[in-house]
C-alpha cells in the first residue's frame, strides 16, 4: 500500500518552520516519522475508505476525504537536535533521536530513567529514527520516553511565530494522542532538571524483550538530602490510564522519609491506588494494578540505590 498523496514542506530554519505552521493550520509535524508514516498508510481493512478528491459528493456522508494538510518536516533543523548539559538541567532538542537518549553518558549518569526508557523503546532501528519530541507529542500512555519525562519533571518549550511558552509535560499531555499544542506551535526542546544525590529508573513489563509495547511501565526518581531523606521524588506510571500518571500520593508518602523497604512498600501501594488501568488485549486491569505496585517497588528500590551511590556534580572531584 503506497502512502496517500501529501505535500511536504521543508523549512531550513526554525523561523521558517514557524511561518509555515502559521500559514497552514492543518499542517502536521514530521520528525522521525516512525509513528506518523505508519499512521498515514491506509489500512487494508478500515471503516471508511479514503475517497479521492472530487468523488466524495457522490458517496455522501460517511466517507472521508484524503488527508490534505501538508507535512512540515523538521529534518533540516539542526538547532532542534542534541543534548546539552547546563548547570542544573539537561536541555534536549525535540528531534534528538531516541538512540541518542539511550546512549548518552549524560543521561545515564544524571537522568537514568530517561536513558532506560529510551533504550526500551521499540527496536534499534526505530530508535535511530524516532525522536524524543515525537514520542512525547504522540502522547501514547505507554510511551517509553514520555513516562520517565513525567517522573523527572520535564518542562516543554514551545515556540510560535511570535512567541514562546513553557509548559510542564504533565499539563501538555491531555489524553491518548491528545496534546496541548496550539495551532502554529512547535515543540523545540525539553528541559529536565537534575539534582545532587538523585537516582532514577524505568522498568517496562512486556512479553517480549524488544519490539514491545509496555503492558505497564513505571519510572521513578528520588532525590535525597545529606541525611538520606527524600526531598523530592517523582513516580510516573505508563499504560495504566489515558495518559502517563504522575503519582502525587507516592511523592507525599515518601517525602521527608528515609526510603527504607517499608517506606517503598507504602509508596508502591499509593501508586497502585492512583493507577486507572483498563483491560484490553494486552493485559487485564487486575494484572496491571498488581504490576504497577510491583514495578513501582522495584523502580523505587533501584532509584534509591542509585541516589545513594550518586556523587552529585561538585561533591566529588
Amino acid at each position: 500500500m503506497v502512502l496517500p498523496s501529501f505535500q511536504v514542506l521543508i523549512p531550513s530554519s526554525l523561523q521558517e518552520a514557524l511561518d509555515m505552521l502559521d500559514g497552514h493550520p492543518d499542517a502536521r509535524l514530521l520528525a522521525g516519522g516512525t509513528d506518523l508514516l505508519v499512521d498515514l498508510r491506509p489500512a487494508v481493512i478500515r471503516s471508511a475508505p479514503f475517497v479521492p478528491q472530487g468523488y466524495a459528493d457522490e458517496w455522501g456522508i460517511g466517507y472521508q476525504q484524503e488527508p490534505s494538510g501538508p507535512l512540515v518536516s523538521l529534518h533540516g533543523l539542526e538547532q532542534l537536535r542534541g543534548l546539552r548539559s547546563l548547570t542544573s538541567h539537561v536541555r534536549a532538542g525535540a528531534t534528538t533521536t531516541v538512540a541518542e537518549l539511550a546512549s548518552s553518558p549524560l543521561l545515564r549518569k544524571h537522568l537514568t530513567a530517561l536513558a532506560e526508557g529510551a533504550a526500551a523503546l521499540g527496536t534499534p532501528l526505530v530508535r535511530n529514527r524516532g525522536t524524543y519530541g515525537g514520542n512525547i507529542c504522540n502522547a501514547r500512555p505507554a510511551a517509553d520516553t514520555l513516562v520517565p519525562t513525567v517522573a523527572l519533571g520535564g518542562t516543554l518549550h514551545l515556540a510560535h511565530k511570535n512567541s514562546t511558552r513553557k509548559v510542564s509535560v504533565v499539563d501538555f499531555v491531555l489524553g491518548p494522542g491528545r496534546i496541548a499544542l496550539r495551532a502554529g506551535e512547535l515543540l523545540t526542546h525539553i528541559q529536565l532538571p537534575f539534582f545532587p544525590r538523585q537516582g532514577s529508573a524505568y522498568l517496562k513489563l512486556g512479553t517480549r524483550k524488544a519490539l514491545e509495547i509496555a503492558q505497564v511501565g513505571v519510572a521513578a526518581s528520588v532525590v535525597l538530602d545529606q541525611a538520606g531523606r527524600v526531598v523530592h521524588s517523582g513516580v510516573a506510571l505508563g499504560a495504566v490510564g489515558p495518559t502517563p500518571i504522575l503519582c502525587h500520593g507516592t511523592a507525599e508518602s515518601l517525602h521527608g522519609h528515609v526510603p527504607d523497604q517499608a517506606a517503598i512498600r507504602a509508596a508502591s501501594l499509593a501508586a497502585r491506588r492512583e493507577a486507572a488501568p483498563i483491560s484490553d488485549h494486552r493485559a487485564s486491569r487486575e494484572y496491571r494494578l498488581e504490576m504497577v505496585q510491583l514495578l513501582t517497588r522495584r523502580a523505587l528500590t533501584r532509584a534509591v540505590e542509585r541516589a545513594r551511590s550518586a556523587a552529585a556534580p561538585g561533591e566529588q572531584s
Partner: peptide
C-alpha cells in the same frame, strides 16, 4: 511499518528502516 527490519539500510552510517524514511 518499521517492525521487521527487512528494509534496513545504513543512513549516514546508522541502520534505519527505509520504509519509514521519506
Amino acid at each position: 511499518a518499521g517492525d521487521c527490519g527487512a528494509c534496513t539500510v545504513l543512513l549516514d552510517g546508522d541502520p534505519v528502516p527505509s520504509c519509514l524514511v521519506l
